[in-house]
Amino acid sequence: MTTIPLPQISPAPHKVVTQESPWARWTLILLALSFLSLFLLLPLVAVFFEALRKGWEVYLAAITEPDALAAIRLTLTAAAIAVPLNLIFGIAAAWAIAKFEFRGKSILTSLIDLPFSVSPVVAGLIYVLIFGLQGWAGPWLREHDISIIFAVPGIVLATIFVTVPFIARELIPLMQAQGSEEEEAAIILGASGWQTLWHITLPNIKWGLLYGTILCNARAMGEFGAVSVVSGHIRGLTNTLSLHVEILYNEYNFVAAFAVASLLALLALVTLVLKTLAEAKVAQQTTRGNHS
């Protein structure tokens, strides 16, 4: 399952003194690097190599074909709905958990983690059980002409489910590390709840928030399992990018499959760069927070 690396709480900008001999250090570095290139870099290169095997024209044709465009649009729509909702929920949940003491706090924390521990396929099937024609709400939905699964809302629901933890999980340790002194000071000085949120809390967490949002977005666009269950695989309608890759591959259309896959890979690369930038800022911010 995916895990989010926690932002570094204790920064150590000065040189770290290690006991290991240079020989041991270099072996470890080499080992890590060769492992990374074998399991991460090589597949990435392979995707682009396969995608461009028949030249740019075939590549462009594959990603501008109507079904591919529809898949891109659906993927963007799902992310554009899922990410802002998780943004709001993430801030609210992290705020509640980090700054307040209440009953059932640990239950809320584990609930947020649930999507990490449940298989995405199970998540998808849950929605089929609830909204499917044979499910609890199915007949009522059909009567009222509302489609949830095998339509865009189902895709969005499944995407939200698998991406719930990303932002909250990112913010909780950050907010806990920052403590609530600044908010308390603001309230004592007469600030309203909204003022405190806008002028104290949000500016304090903005880089951590961005970092979480980026990860959340990457997962939202790349999700396969849960979305596959609720999609129905209708081309041009309920096919996301990752599902479209599978379809093309199964149609002996390997170049096109890899071309579409390369879009997802590109997204991952952009995410990686943004994430590194945000990460550096988070580290800075936490340092400042701790020292002030």
Binding site: V128, F131, G132, L133, Q134, G135, G138, R142, S147, I149, F150, G232, H233, I234, R235, I247, N250
Partner: peptide, 15 residues
């Protein structure tokens, strides 16, 4: 929409 026949039938049953 394409897939294994039994799986597709199930999907139609589910809506």
């Amino acid at each position: 929409s394409h897939g294994g026949s039994g799986k597709q039938a199930r999907a139609v049953i589910d809506g």
